[in-house]
């Protein structure tokens, strides 16, 4: 708890909590002040989740090995029809099967 690295993480979590609360109260504040977000900024912010998340998905697919790639490919197909719990389950089954039976 006392080491500086760990306090660094606690501060990040607290900042994340503040950022999240701002999003949760932000609409109320805007409604009472009647302000609008500049449209370009809204378009940019709207793109942030897909952009950041893609950088976490694509490299794992390309550099994660054949077992991870196969598991992600199957999960992707499942995800087109079913919710993310099924995606997780399908991907997990594939990777476990490959690792324990196909020797990956």
């Amino acid at each position: 708890m006392a080491n500086p690295d760990h306090m660094h993480l606690i501060y990040i979590i607290l900042a994340a909590a503040v950022a999240t609360f701002i999003t949760r109260i932000g609409g109320y504040v805007m409604m009472t002040q009647m302000k609008r977000i500049p449209p370009r900024m809204e378009a940019a912010l709207n793109a942030v989740p897909a952009a950041v998340l893609s950088t976490l998905v694509a490299p794992a697919f390309v550099y994660g090995g054949w077992d991870v790639a196969a598991s992600m490919a199957v999960a992707f197909v499942v995800g087109l029809r079913f919710n993310s719990l099924w995606m997780l389950f399908a991907g997990w089954v594939v990777v476990m099967a490959l690792r324990h039976f196909a020797g990956f």
Partner: peptide, 24 residues
């Protein structure tokens, strides 16, 4: 970098602004 962690969390949660506006 911490700023990108916070920005990403903010952006993933950004939709809540629409919720709170509508809930008001």
């Amino acid at each position: 970098q911490p700023w990108l962690i916070i920005l990403s969390i903010f952006a993933v949660n950004f939709r809540h602004i629409l919720y709170s506006a509508s809930l008001t």
